[in-house]
Design a protein around this nucleic acid. Structure first.
Lengths: 148, 148
DNA sequence: GTCAAGATTTAGAATTATTCTAAATCGAGT
DNA sequence: ACTCGATTTAGAATAATTCTAAATCTTGAC
């Protein structure tokens, strides 16, 4: 071992971000983060639990949910789908997208979409693109008003 | 009553679409569809159930799910979020979007997004847009290969 | 260093969302 | 009227997530 700074330890940034959100760096949070980085296959909470458990057998499901929430909150992890909760349905078959109010959870139809042509998405070889789903997130007029 | 064709009955199109998918027009399916069109607030299955139940007290939750599935299948209704199932997580905080394989359910990172500027979305007055989530749907290379 | 306060973890129960099952009913075509 | 397959129903089962209360850990004040 030498005393010279080598690589910055990868946890540094995690610690900083947690701290910035008023959260502590714990072995469980580290472990969950590590599991996610190890195999970036977009696992479910349950898969994360099983993988973390193999390294840290005492970890519980509730902790995995807590850790995931903490990591999302401090910006180290994204939820692939921003919703958690019941599926919603819409009888409007016109081409349109949805605006989600992050404050009150309501959903509005927005009569504008991004077409596959306009988007000009370059996919890796072999993928067949059928549809682009565009979800807009922000505040609805009511919640903008309340936010003052 | 007269024999002259007046307005085409609104069920016509529903019936046709159901038929086209090999499904029958039933009072329950009509009712569920009507509930959705009556108040286009993107209700959950449970909300649809309660609203339908007030007009048709014997309807069951299982039927509401069946009807919603039938309506989605025949193209009369959209699921606001295309996922049903567990939330997935992703440690990649680079700006990117997700490709969902509709056949096998796997998710891939696509290092390209549509920025708020590029999208040039015109929202009604009062909305504050914070983020655009773009989800790509189609077939992954493996499933394209299998599809032959 | 010791202690109190607050944060975190834990197991398990509770809740919520969805799917499954098996029996009853319905409806189209004969 | 009869049959067959589709549909509906109630309720059980499963899956996903959240809640609860007790135990444990950490940090900062002394």
């Amino acid at each position: 071992m030498n005393a010279v700074a080598t690589k910055p330890p990868p946890e540094k940034s995690l610690n900083e971000r947690l701290a910035h959100s008023g959260l502590r760096l714990t072995p469980q949070r580290q472990q969950v983060h590590e599991v996610l980085r190890e195999k970036m296959d977009h696992p479910t909470a349950d898969q994360v639990f099983m993988r973390a458990k193999s390294k840290m057998p005492e970890i519980s499901m509730a902790t995995v949910y807590n850790c995931l929430d903490a990591l999302v909150q401090c910006g180290m992890v994204r939820q692939v789908t921003l919703d958690r909760g019941a599926t919603r349905f819409c009888p409007n078959m016109q081409d349109h997208s949805h605006f989600y109010c992050d404050a009150c959870g309501s959903v509005y139809d927005i009569l504008q979409t991004i077409s596959i042509k306009d988007a000009d998405i370059k996919l890796p070889r072999g993928f067949r693109l059928k549809l682009i789903e565009t979800n807009l997130h922000g505040l609805c007029p009511d919640c903008v008003a309340k936010a003052k």
